[in-house]
Design a protein around this nucleic acid. Structure first.
Lengths: 159, 159
DNA sequence: ACCTCTAGCAACAAGAAAAGTTACGAGATA
DNA sequence: TATCTCGTAACTTTTCTTGTTGCTAGAGGT
């Protein structure tokens, strides 16, 4: 029963890039778990498969946020404290994928109308992106963990 | 030579939704053009084909920003003045497509960690979206046209 | 030594989404 | 009536991301 792990969700092919959300989820769980988490375990948690996990976590490893160890007893461990990892860090470790689903056209670079349109749109997008990046930079995984604690407390109280 | 129009760009299938950019481009040109623009003409301008143009412009027509007329001499005309159309109007007329390429996960709605993560992310996205929407609402097509005029003037001066 | 567990990696398959395409219908005008 | 034009449905193409398989290599335990 060692390698009976993966594949649950076959369809429903993700219109959005949910890697950031997933990695944040995983990292916080890793912090609590204490002990290496195997790709298989993580894949189960995310309803995906171990190869996808390794693929995605590779970026985090390269940036020094997690470590991976081969062999028996190996797996993934946090390489930093949660308070030293921001949402922006993880976003960038994932390769800073495009934030916006809306894009510009470059069909007629010399067209002054196109230039005016693109200029207005890029200004707006840059402004929104700056806000998002600032937000991401200002939130650490420790903040999320604290939020978790509060939610847990809240639920405990209600019983 | 009447119907030798469409298809230039076969490949390069658009990673982003560029409909907003394209429609803005078209609308401003329509304002200058004076006279109905056929889907074929517009398709040529955008390096696409007439059916895609109709499909996209349908939303703008339904919201009253443009009119379409069938038959000889028909085509598309502006139904409002440029100063009465904002970028936000067009975005919404296109069905308010998703702005962000990054999404959340709902794998474990009961998981408090996931809740904490999603809460932080949605807050950030909402804030960024509010900024973008405010920007879009504050810019009219007339503003873009003015920007065009300035660029044109600039170029004329440089000669 | 050998066996098992683990990540790393490359290559391929699958599924979905957006755009492109084809085909035909309906209205308008000469 | 012939032709131009949009309206629309159905199908195809292209591309992206993820999922999957198969193999290599390293790390322990037995």
């Amino acid at each position: 029963m060692s390698m009976a792990a993966n594949s649950k969700r076959k369809f429903e092919a993700m219109r959005n890039d949910s890697r950031l959300s997933r990695m944040l989820h995983v990292l916080i769980h890793m912090d609590r778990h204490k002990g290496a988490a195997t790709s298989d375990m993580i894949a189960n948690m995310l309803n995906t498969n171990p190869v996808v996990v390794r693929r995605t976590m590779a970026g985090l490893r390269d940036q020094g946020y997690v470590r991976s160890e081969k062999g028996r007893g190996g797996g993934w461990t946090l390489a930093r404290k949660l308070e030293d990892i921001s949402l922006l860090d993880i976003h960038q470790a994932l390769g800073a994928p495009p934030i916006f689903a809306i894009g510009l056209t470059e069909d007629h670079p010399e067209c002054l109308v196109e230039q005016a349109v693109n200029s207005a749109l890029t200004d707006a997008f840059k402004e929104a992106e700056a806000v998002l990046v600032a937000r991401f930079a200002g939130v650490t995984l420790a903040d999320l963990a604290r939020d978790f604690d509060q939610r847990f407390e809240q639920i405990s109280k209600c019983r």
